[in-house]
Nucleic acid binder design. Structure first.
Length: 155
DNA sequence: GCCAACGTTGGC
DNA sequence: GCCAACGTTGGC
């Protein structure tokens, strides 16, 4: 069976969870996503897929480094936790609504690839993240965009 | 802190 | 099933 690596972009607010947190922990469960489109993308993710780790809602939003999917989507336990911000009263154990993969650390860029950089080049103009009003926190990325961003960030 | 863009909710 | 009201995201 053919197995092709796919590429993704995942947003996180650095005050909540930054690339440095991931670097230190090596691995994290991507809990808290409460958007169906983002959830569906996470369910498509396969082990070894690569992820652009993006900082949102910060002074310089942009891609900070690379992660890798190290466990495929499974139910997000915070949906059942009444004390959690991510609690969803409509989710049941029999019928979980929300799923998350585990993401492992690969590398932190020496040079972050900022949203400004991405927006300034026509090469990236059809990326979802550069489109105005794109709030989607988990997005597919093409190989050409992934490779280019890595070449800009990792040097 | 503002606000545009977008997703979700709920009344009808 | 429509759509107005509301809540959230996230750049600036």
């Amino acid at each position: 069976m053919k197995k092709e690596i796919r590429y993704w972009l995942m947003k996180s607010e650095p005050t909540t969870y930054s690339i440095d947190h991931l670097k230190k922990e090596k691995k994290t469960s991507w809990e808290g996503v409460r958007n169906y489109q983002a959830r569906n993308f996470m369910q498509e993710m396969r082990t070894s897929d690569l992820v652009l780790f993006y900082h949102s809602n910060t002074t310089e939003p942009g891609v900070m480094g690379i992660g890798k999917i190290c466990k495929e989507a499974y139910p997000d336990h915070t949906q059942w936790d009444k004390k959690s911000d991510y609690y969803d009263p409509k989710a049941t154990k029999e019928n979980p609504r929300w799923f998350m993969p585990d993401v492992c650390f690969v590398k932190k860029f020496s040079t972050p690839v900022t949203l400004t950089t991405l927006k300034s080049s026509p090469f990236f103009k059809d990326m979802l993240v550069t489109q105005r009003g794109s709030r989607l926190s988990v997005q597919p990325v093409s190989k050409k965009h992934f490779d280019k961003i890595v070449s800009l960030g990792d040097r």
